[in-house]
Every structure is written in structure tokens, then in C-alpha cells.
Design a protein around this nucleic acid. Structure first.
Lengths: 243, 243
DNA sequence: CCGGGTCCTTGTTTCAGATCAAGGCAACAG
DNA sequence: CTGTTGCCTTGATCTGAAACAAGGACCCGG
């Protein structure tokens, strides 16, 4: 709640991109940029600026004008929405390779806050939009990605409507594992860069229920709680619990 | 559950479009077609076939191959998703002007069933996709629409996570009113083409809770339950209840 | 080493909504 | 007219997550 709002410009390093260009970007093949030819990539690169955020810093806030779109190259962010009555809902988490600003909306619909040290690739919105008009296959790629996001949103809806804290938590862990796998990160332990409160606000539970549920799963040897994440011990069982 | 699965082709009337072309379509300005020039509209028209469904008929089913995309020109459909364990979640309702198949996915993610007598405009998926590659502004329009859908999905997520049956029902009614207003339908009474069970499955409640909540709102003179829908008597109050 | 954070866990109570059960009502067919 | 069916409503009881309350683990700065 007390995170300082602070534009990304402050963290921009104009020299960074000369050192590591788009062509050498680790997330290029995961992201929308994969749609581009080398020369188009060059053009895109000329629009991009790297930005760095520390944990708890805000990349952009709900309702503010959308000045840029971003590609996450390292770290994780929390995407949340504040309700008029003060309650918060965490719409999701942006991981490496995720694109922020898909919908190309005039105003941000969510607040994006860094959960860890984060690096992003920043593109001016106008310039990006212009480029997209000229490169229909970039738009197509973006639209595909939007379809994927729509799918994620539907899964989450299913998750929220499904009663049972255990079901929710189990599905959440599996979904996160799936997203990590999609970007080639298959570790024994599942990193949880977000706190319990974030998970609770994401799943429509309270922090106590999330904590209790994780503790129970740990006690029943389905998972093992480790610092900064969990180890998934019995994935078939977890899948049975989650659906 | 017992609705007959039955392809839309059976209801196709190849002569219909000669009688009422795209240019005279009532929903043209509401839908993705609004992005097109008259001659492009002609081209689109040559791809379109009208199809008619009676209530309870299935337009397409979850997991089946996507052979076509649709534009709803009359009536309403229920978009639902079946979980492996048999539970159902109603992802949403398609109204007049809505486009089905935005994501251009290979397979359907939901089942679409007519809630009333429905007419749709059917476009072959391949042909539509080809047209879109040639008409970037159609793709752009589609992407915009996808952004809108993503917004709706987020709203619904908020709704599902937000506790309180009353809040959910109130927000649902207001959201539906908003969607009707968007397509120029502002009647005193809000039509509810879906049943109580559908609303329950949409909001993550039971049919009893939906019924009780509507009854309570009626008793408190916030709404008036009428056959086939409700009349919204005290909209400010409803807004306070819904957020 | 201590003091003050923050985050997480655990215990107890309470309540909203699920569940179980029954009945009402309109449409329709025989 | 009567039985059936589908949809909605109402009531009684139960349950699981929220709310409230407290304590523990860890980190960091002095």
C-alpha cells in the first residue's frame, strides 16, 4: 500500500540498449517480438528503452494515461485493481516474457507494481501503435497474445467461481507452474515472488485461509513450503485437488 | 443439458442475405463490421450466411474445431464452460451485436447455446481470417473489441472475487443494463433472457441464493420482478449495492 | 544485542451462503 | 380436467471461509 509511485523514466538507462540489443534479448522468442524479421526488430529496437525497477516500485497506475507499453525481461509484477470502496483485487501477475498494454487502451486498467527487481523493455505507445499499423503481422501476433490473455482470464474466472479454498490454491500453483513451463522455466521448486496477501487477493480468499491451506498441503506432503516458494511433491494429487 | 447438438448449417438459409444485405444490417454499426467501407462490406457479405436457431439449440460446443465466427443479429446466447467434474460455469452471455470467435482460436473454448430465438451472421473462419490479413483495420477493430472483452472479463473477475450475493446480483443487473444501453436498447424493464440457474452459474452462486436475493431486492422496492425480466426502480440504490 | 518492522501462522468465533427439502405456479399434453 | 414438467420460491439446517485475536519467525538498523 505504501509503495512510492514513481515513473519508470527515472530508472531509464538510455545506454543499456546499446549493450544488449533486441537481437540478443533472452525473452524475444517468448514474446510478441518473435513475429518480427531482423530488420523490423532493428526498427523496434530504436523505439525501446530499458527500465529497471526495484521491488515495491510502481511501473504504472490504474486510470493514468497509457504512455507506453512494456515487455517484461526479468522479474515479476503484480497487476491489481483498486475498487472504489478500498478493496483490492489482484488481476494477475506479469512474468518474464509478458507484454503489458496489450489492449492498447487510452488509460491503464490496472496498477503494475514490481514484486522483485524487475527489468522491462519500454516502447512509446504512439510509436508502437504506428509501427503496428505498418506491420500487420505484429498486430496479428498481439491479437493472438490477447486471445491467450482472454483464455487466462477465463481460467481465473473459473477458479474464482469454484468454491473451496483448496481447489483455488491448488489450481493457482498448477497454473503458475504452467506459465513458468511455457517460458522454459521448469525448476523443482516453484518460485512465489508474491506474498500470501497477494495470492489471497488474487483468489478471492483471506490471507489466513491461504496460509492455512498451504500449511495443510504441506502437512499432507502434497507440497513443501520453502523460503520464497514451494516445492511441488505430489503433482497428480495436486491436479486432483485443483480439477 | 438435454439440448440437441446441431450444426448451424441445418438452419442456414442461403437466400436470406439477398433480401437483407450487410448494408441494411441493424447491428452493423455496433459490431466489427463498422470498420469497413461499403465495398469491403460487399466482400464481407459474400462470405456471410444467415443462420437461425431456436431456444436451447447449440451454435457450437466447447473443444470442437472452430469452423466459423459469428455476429449475433438477434436474440441472446449463453456461453458456458464445462469442468471435467461436471460443474458448469457460465462465462457470459452474447447479445445483439456481439461477435463470437474474437480470439480466432483453433478450437472453441466455450459452448454457445441459444437462450431465445436467435439469428446470427456466419462467416467461414478461413475466409474471414484471409480477409483480415488483407484488411488490417478490420483486424484492428477486432483487436479493439478483444480489448473490450478483456475489460468485461476483468469486471467479472472482480465481481466473482467480491463477496456478497447482493453485490454480485446488483452489479450483474447494472452491467447487463450497460450492455443493452451500449447497443441502444434502453427500456424501462431489463430483459433477462437467461434463467436463474444461468445467473447463478455466472455469478458463482446457487439458484436459491439468486432467487432469494432478487426477491429481497423486489421486497425492498429496488427492483420489480416481471415476467421475463426485472424493472429497475431505484438505480442509485442498486449502484450503491453493486459498487 | 535489542527494538521495531513485516510477513506468516495458528486458534476461536461468527455468519453468509450452500445444502437439503418442500411447495407453488404456469404451460402443455393426454 | 388432470397429470407432468420445468422453473422459481421459500424454509430449515449445516458448513466452511471470514473475522477477530494473538503469537512466532525473520530481517534490518542501531
Amino acid at each position: 500500500m505504501s509503495s512510492e509511485t514513481c515513473g519508470p523514466e527515472r530508472h531509464t538507462c538510455p545506454h543499456a540498449r546499446t549493450e544488449v540489443g533486441c537481437a540478443h534479448c533472452q525473452v524475444r522468442l517468448l514474446s510478441v517480438c518473435a513475429a518480427l524479421t531482423p530488420e523490423e526488430l532493428n526498427e523496434l529496437e530504436s523505439l525501446s528503452r530499458h527500465a529497471v525497477l526495484d521491488a515495491r516500485q510502481t511501473l504504472f497506475s490504474q486510470d493514468e494515461e497509457t504512455t507506453a507499453v512494456y515487455n517484461v525481461t526479468a522479474g515479476a509484477l503484480r497487476l491489481s485493481r483498486l475498487l472504489p470502496d478500498g478493496r483490492r483485487h489482484v488481476m494477475g501477475f506479469a512474468l518474464v516474457g509478458d507484454f503489458l498494454g496489450l489492449a492498447l487502451a487510452e488509460r491503464q486498467t490496472v496498477t503494475a507494481e514490481a514484486l522483485s527487481h524487475v527489468t522491462v523493455c519500454r516502447f512509446d505507445r504512439r510509436a508502437f501503435q504506428d509501427l503496428m499499423v505498418r506491420k500487420p503481422h505484429l498486430l496479428q501476433r498481439l491479437h493472438e497474445r490477447a486471445g491467450y490473455e482472454l483464455g487466462l482470464a477465463q481460467e481465473l474466472m473459473l477458479l474464482l467461481a469454484r468454491r473451496g479454498a483448496e481447489e483455488k490454491v491448488a489450481s493457482f500453483l498448477l497454473a503458475l507452474r504452467g506459465r513458468y513451463a511455457r517460458i522454459g522455466l521448469t525448476s523443482v521448486t516453484l518460485e512465489l515472488p508474491m506474498g500470501r496477501q497477494d495470492i489471497a487477493d488474487h483468489l478471492g480468499l483471506t490471507i489466513e485461509t491461504v496460509s492455512r491451506t498451504l500449511t495443510r498441503l504441506d502437512r499432507e506432503k502434497v507440497i513443501l513450503i520453502v523460503p520464497g516458494g514451494v516445492r511441488l511433491l505430489d503433482i497428480p494429487r495436486l491436479e486432483r485437488l485443483g480439477g
